[in-house]
Amino acid sequence: MATYFIPTEEWEALVRALSRSARLYAPRAEGEDYRLEPAGDDSPPPPFSRYRAVQSLKAILFEPRFDVGGYLGGGDAAGPAGGGEAVVLGAKGCNIAALAVLDFALGADVPDPFYARNRERTLIVSSDCLDFKEVCFCTLVGGRPYPERGFDLNLSPVEGGFVVETGSPNGEAFVARFKDRFAPASPARLAARDAARAELTARLREHQRRLGYLWGAVSRELVERVFESPVWAEEAERCVECGACNFVCPTCHCFLLSDHGRERFRRLRNWDSCQYKGFARVGGGGSPRPALFERLRNRYDKKFVFCPAVIGVSGCTGCGRCVEACIGRIDMREVMKRLSGCK
């Protein structure tokens, strides 16, 4: 859509104003990491995060455990509504890429009404990465360390402020609402943004190359071709079936409904993990994926085969969260590297 420029002080003043009118989620620096958390209106201006936060947008838009309502006299209203408009700052390219998967998975056909509501009332402000984590591999799965579409607003730091790009009617409306603070983006500033982007992308690619990760372009064919590889079982040996990879993943969206209460019957929607033994088990006890390695393989199959085929985008955004979270140190980059070696 359109591009603008906003000076740093103006942006900070705007964020302060926002934190009074909407629920604000912003990155908070913690060591080398950022935590994406609710920011109160008395907190200092949030830092400009150099790369993605520990938490993905999933936890904000699609609650880990959510009461979807009661039935048979259990009170119908879903709750808690957690109401009001929200603004999320600090989303990165990989976060935005994940939204395409979540929007399809939870929003297509008959949408999950609670996800749809959260999505509708949340303004997503993303920004370019200025650096990357060791585990980052967005460029291997078709991503870039800066968002190109799918955000409401995107910020790119340049000398003295930010180039702001609008990516949706909501983003446009936002700029229109505070139009005094924004100026048109000059060609020089746009050029500076593009140069910074190109420089970081090159640096990230070099990082992949040094680590020997060159599998990106063939990932889909890879998983289809190597279905019978022994690598799956070897890697799965270190899996303890904790589901952390699913829970930290920005695109994993599988959930399980569970029923509670003896008089007031309530139903909860809970994040689920396809690594759990019972995930695909049917009433009679049979399961299509009784072995752990089959479930590990299934996760790759969903990300690299199902998502491209059905949604048209990669189910893996290369954020590296699963690499950091796995206590068995199963590293998706390594798994893919090993698989690509076995024809």
Binding site: A105, A108, A280, V305
Partner: peptide, 24 residues
Amino acid sequence: MEKNMSCGFGKCGHCRLGTVYVCR
């Protein structure tokens, strides 16, 4: 096709078979 199901309308992911959701 009999598959594990939770939501019934193509959201929860339980019933996936290849590129189809059996429930939907």
